[in-house]
């Protein structure tokens, strides 16, 4: 992968590789599970946005619903992740992981209600 290109590219690929290794070793599987979902949401949102730019936004309500659900779910999931991350325990002393999940579930249901409303 790090072919004989230039020193900067090999250095940056080294950095990326070490970053990935550190992530794999130091992240709990629960957080990886959430991260995978975040990545999924990001990719879905990007593809919908590209479709909107390249092809059409014609059923604009549908685009809003699809894209908005991705963005909104990403925000909710990201906040869930930051609240259940043991590293951030000091910052969210009053928020137990269960409380965070309840917030996440409630927020998701409200978000989905609006998304279906927009879907028309």
């Amino acid at each position: 992968m790090a072919g004989p290109k230039s020193t900067t590219s090999s250095a940056s690929s080294n950095a990326v590789r070490s970053l990935l290794r550190a992530y794999n070793e130091n992240t709990s599987s629960r957080l990886k599970f959430i991260d995978a979902f975040l990545l999924f949401l990001m990719l879905s949102g990007i593809i919908q946005f590209v479709y909107c730019i390249l092809v059409t936004n014609f059923p604009f309500n549908a685009f809003l619903a699809g894209f908005g659900s991705c963005v909104g779910q990403f925000v909710l999931t990201a906040s869930l992740r930051s609240q259940v991350n043991p590293v951030n325990r000091a910052e969210f002393k009053d928020v137990s992981p269960e409380r965070a999940f309840a917030d996440f579930a409630l927020g998701s249901i409200v978000l989905h209600f609006f998304v279906y409303n927009f879907l028309g």
Binding site: A36, L39, F40, L43, S44, Q48
Partner: peptide, 22 residues
């Protein structure tokens, strides 16, 4: 085509989840 294209984030998700093995 784009609808099909939207499927592959699902594959990524499922692949990563199966790898995490929660």
């Amino acid at each position: 085509f784009f609808a099909g294209f939207l499927l592959w984030p699902w594959f990524v998700l499922l692949a990563l989840w199966s790898q995490v093995g929660l």
